[in-house]
Each structure stands twice: as structure tokens, then as C-alpha cells.
Design a protein around this nucleic acid. Structure first.
Lengths: 208, 208
DNA sequence: TAGATTGTTAATCGATTAACAATC
DNA sequence: TAGATTGTTAATCGATTAACAATC
């Protein structure tokens, strides 16, 4: 009913709606959103209907109202606190990622084992990994990013579970398994590169 | 015939095969690979048959032979040169990404507009963006990564097209459109975060 | 009102899985 | 040989698209 790709499309509709709003659109049609995101108008309406997002026969969707509803489905109606484990290049990139600026995604702390990286005074402090569980509980953080080398990922994952984390985005090139209590999304950069290479080499366009 | 998700699975089979090889497996069965990657054995055999990867009735697949074939499909049988445009935190993280070490993915240069970042002596030199086209042609680079802020992405993309780039992995939170000559994969980190948030909030496990 | 767009149902399309004959 | 596993075809499942009645 709600597959990964359906939610990905919802994110795109949201981004398209933001763009259209900035162009002073007050209402949009399923046709506009389809064009902007590369799907059919039917798909847009179907996706909306599954989440009970409704518009106006004849009048399309009010952009402001639509954004409220999409943000609600996507959890963007309230702050979402993340911690990052592993403050190497990638971890630091995520902590400083400017794209989260206007969004409700907040990276509230980083954790590492290297004392040279600790910095308690930063907006998002960098702390010893031993403080992870305490910090997560004190600050009610349920979401985490793993940005450590592959050999350290499983150990970090287990620490995160003990700390009560409910969702993990894993950038380490190791496949972590979710269970009933913890949702894991694995994002393997090498795999993304391989995918691009394949489609360039064969000149086939991916369905994505 | 060859969708994005089929190629993603192929990457996973390859990673599983590498792991099994390191455990001294000489042959593997579709069943092993299915278990290791979370798909059915039928799926594995179907995927293989589409790419003409064949095994031994009764004897499964020789790991070494399988890896050769998978690497060939994925373009890992020869070096794949990438350039990175935008040497901020994310760009630097990609240039230094240790996960590419053993792989045939090579990041051969970075480009930026900030002179403070230039470094012609590094293994992967950081160069002024004006030198992009010249460098790409001289070094026969066809693959690029965009890691610049959103407002700069479209301009960079057009420069890349002019430089003869054939494939782009875009990390900027803007949707770039591929055409017949250039394959684009958009990887929007915010979207990945939203996806995780959704599934954590609803405790539904994604099909992925 | 007449015309246009939604919301939803039915039809289509494609991908996954099951089954089994071929065969090592 | 007998048993186990592949490779492939057929069946199933799910997701996308088309169509159209409802209606603003």
C-alpha cells in the first residue's frame, strides 16, 4: 500500500509544490505535478488518494493546503532529531548539509571515537561515542545516521539499538538488517555509482 | 528488461559473492545468494538469466566465475573515471571515500570556484572549474558527480554536458533532467531522510 | 450552465514468484 | 543412478495507467 517508491514520489511532489509556490502558484493540478516530477497525472491522484489528500474537482489543489498535508505525511510538520555516528568527511558533510536548513530535519550531535574531533561547544556538539546512549535518551532522539567505516558499522548499530534508536540511515558499505523495532535504510554509495555506470554503458534510461 | 532495481540487486549479489568468497566459498547456490541479499532464489536465477549468467545444474555457481560476470555487467572490469564538481564537505567526502579503494571507481579530480581549495599536487587534484572541459577531454572522463549547492547545479550540469560527460550523479537538491546523451541519477539526501522518517513513524517496513 | 478536473474503478502492464522439466 | 539445482515457462501479484462518472 505504501511502498518506498510511493513515499519517494510524495517527497518529489512536495518539492515541486514548494517550487511552484515560489512562482506564486496558488493552486496546482495533478497534471502540473505530474509534469514537474515526471509521472502521469493519474499516478499523482492515485498517490494522493491513498493518503487521503484531496483537492477540488475543477479547482485542483490549493498549494498551501497541499504542502501542509504532504509535510504531515512525511513527518515534516515537526522537528526530526538525528544524531550522526562517525565524524569523518561524510559525517561532517551531513552535519553541515545546507539542504536541511529550511526543513524540519535537525542534526543535533555527532559522535566519534577520536578525541581530536570532540567539540562540546558547536551547535551540534561532537561527543565521545560513550555518551551516545545518554545523549539520545536525554534528548529523545530516535533517528541516527551511521557514517563509520564498514568494519565498525555493526558495532555502532548495536549501540544504537541499545540507545533506543528507532530508525537508522546507514552509509557504511555493509548491509544492516532491520528488525521489528528498528527501521534501517542502507544507502551504499558504491552501489549508486555502479548503477549509473551500468546505465551509461548501456545507454538505457532507468525507470528509477 | 533491465530496471534500476534489477541492477541494484546485481550489485548486492556481487557484494554477497565477495563476502562468501572471503569465507572460502568456492561455489554458491541461488539459495545462498537469496538469503544473503533478502530476495527469493527464483529472483536470483531470473536476474542471472537475463544477463546470460549461467551456473551448473546441481553445482550452483563458481564464485570466481560469477564475480567476473557480475563485475562485467556492472562495468567493474575496467577503471571508471569520475570527476567531482564542488569540493565542499560532501565533495571532499566523495574524493576521499575509502569504500572505493578496492573497486574500479576512480575519482580523478575535483573542481571548484574557490581558489583557496585548488591543489594541483594532490592525487586527485582540485582545479578551477574553467579547466573542467579541458581536463575531461584530455583524460577521457565521461562520468561526473555534482556536489554544489542547489542554485549552482543547473549551471554546472550544462558545463558538464558541453565537456562531453555522459553520466551524472547529482547530489544537489534539484532535479536535473537527463536527455538522450546524458544519463542523470538524482540522489537527494533530504528525500532519503524523509523516507526513513515516514517508515519509522508508521512502523511499516519498506519494500525497498 | 458547460467545461474541466478530481477521485475511483477497471484494464493493463510489468515484475516477482512458483513450479517443473532438463540435466549435471 | 538418484538427488539436487538450474533455467525457463506459466501463474501470481502488485503497481501504473486509462477511463469515466461525479461534481465543482
Amino acid at each position: 500500500m505504501s511502498t518506498r517508491s510511493r513515499i519517494l514520489r510524495l517527497s518529489r511532489y512536495k518539492n515541486a509544490a514548494i517550487r511552484l509556490k515560489s512562482l506564486n502558484f496558488v493552486k496546482v493540478f495533478s497534471d502540473n505535478l505530474g509534469d514537474a516530477t515526471g509521472v502521469t497525472a493519474s499516478q499523482v491522484r492515485k498517490d494522493f488518494s491513498i493518503f487521503g489528500i484531496s483537492g477540488n474537482r475543477r479547482g485542483g489543489y490549493q498549494v498551501d493546503e497541499l504542502l501542509v498535508q504532504l509535510n504531515k505525511v512525511l513527518g515534516k510538520d515537526k522537528p526530526q532529531k538525528f544524531i550522526v555516528v562517525g565524524v569523518g568527511n561524510l559525517g561532517r558533510a551531513l552535519i553541515n548539509y545546507p539542504g536541511f536548513g529550511k526543513s524540519e530535519i535537525r542534526i543535533v550531535a555527532g559522535f566519534d571515537i577520536d578525541p581530536a574531533k570532540y567539540n562540546r561547544k558547536a551547535d551540534a556538539p561532537i561527543l565521545p561515542i560513550d555518551e551516545l546512549a545518554g545523549f539520545a535518551k536525554a534528548n529523545e532522539v530516535e533517528l541516527a545516521i551511521i557514517a563509520v567505516p564498514d568494519f565498525a558499522a555493526q558495532g555502532v548499530f548495536e549501540k544504537l539499538i541499545k540507545a533506543g534508536i528507532k530508525g537508522v540511515l546507514n552509509f557504511a558499505p555493509i548491509r544492516l538488517k532491520s528488525d521489528d523495532n528498528v527501521t534501517v535504510h542502507n544507502l551504499n554509495l558504491e552501489t549508486e555509482f555502479e548503477n549509473l555506470i551500468y546505465f551509461v554503458n548501456t545507454k538505457t534510461s532507468p525507470t528509477e
